[in-house]
Write a protein that binds this DNA or RNA. Structure first.
Lengths: 204, 204
DNA sequence: CCTATGCTCAAACGATCGTTTGATTTTCCT
DNA sequence: AGGAAAATCAAACGATCGTTTGAGCATAGG
């Protein structure tokens, strides 16, 4: 590992921070390269274009995050006694663990931006590379909520995933409770978000 | 009432649509004025600047929306038997009624963007002009949820309002169920969102 | 009818954007 | 050590951004 962080890594770190702060269009390559301490042309040299840099920022975190989500899902899904709460836990816990790291919390803000912006190219990239994750969770939700129509289920999943992403994007700033340990607080938060998401998905 | 819509109104309508589609920075004044069928300079003539146009887009909808929210809140708040669900209904129902209009649904998308972007100027404008609404609802929530710390309550309110805005921003596209009347469907949706929001606010 | 006022228009302003260029420096292999 | 390959650099490219200008058009009041 490079003790002086490589140019690529410094660009990726600065991009994550600036994208979270000013958005993908709002953060210019000149601000970005200045913050990273590299030359302006370095972005196009190492990544080809700004758009591909955006994709790499997502890839760096989402590969590991979604792998852990699928692993957690495999542990609970497909059984006769699988509960909605278990599936939601598999979706929420890996993301919340990521967002407890400072840089991870920044990335969740970036993810929340991607959700809000309706950039067709970005949605296509996310769908192509990580669509199978949502699809596997959706299949499990459909099995657990058979009384919902397809359209209604899709809308509720979009509602819940958007809400969860928003929730964890504002998470880096209110940690450290002091009276309870960090792991206990995290466990409380997971339980709270699972109940929240379950209420968004399940019908009365 | 101008039968041929005035230049100002045509700019506001086109701005609402383009801001929802491409964001505040992403929508240029040239795209905007072309869509509105007016001259490029008309924006700066009638509104002074692009930033003030953004503010007017919000003002046009939020004045009425928040007035109805406060009126609904006044009808249920401050009593001994006030429930969390009643307060949430007062917050949710006016917004959902707005989002059932096509243009209203577009505006909810604009509102969701304002939530995701951390533009300081925009947040200050919204806080200055509509902060008292959130503050009044927050006071009622604090009264109904006395066991929550201030920081925890604020975080949960931010979580829930963000989730609700996101929910109603994607609402224009899945209406018309066919088998149930529109008002019945709306009533179902209100009930669903109220339960969802209540789960996000209340502790176990 | 004439003029003052409100409005629209094409054109241009300077600034900033993402990207490219070509030269220069650094790195690594034989 | 020497030379190919990789990386960094300052500078410039054309495009597009929000904004301003000044002339031209409309219309209502005296």
């Amino acid at each position: 590992m490079n003790h002086p962080a490589s140019t690529k890594d410094r660009i990726l770190a600065a991009a994550e921070s600036l994208f979270a702060q000013r958005g993908f269009e709002g953060a210019s390559l000149r601000q970005l390269t200045a913050a990273a301490g590299v030359n302006l042309a370095a972005v196009n040299y190492h990544f080809g274009s700004k758009e591909r840099l955006v994709e790499e920022v997502f890839r760096r975190r989402l590969d590991a995050l979604n792998q852990r989500r699928l692993a957690a899902l495999a542990r609970v899904a497909g059984r006769d006694d699988t509960t909605l709460e278990q599936v939601l836990d598999a979706f929420i816990r890996p993301a919340l663990e990521l967002s407890h790291d400072d840089h991870g919390a920044l990335f969740m803000r970036v993810l929340a931006r991607a959700f809000a912006e309706h950039d067709d190219r970005l949605r296509q990239f996310l769908s192509e590379n990580y669509g199978h994750v949502i699809r596997q969770f959706t299949a499990e939700f459909a099995h657990l909520l058979p009384h919902l129509s397809k359209a209604e289920l899709y809308w509720r999943i979009d509602l819940v995933t958007g809400a969860l992403t928003h929730a964890m994007s504002g998470f880096g700033m209110i940690q450290r409770k002091g009276d309870v340990s960090e792991s206990a607080h995290r466990e409380q938060t997971v339980a709270h978000l699972v109940r929240f998401a379950a209420a968004g998905l399940s019908a009365p």
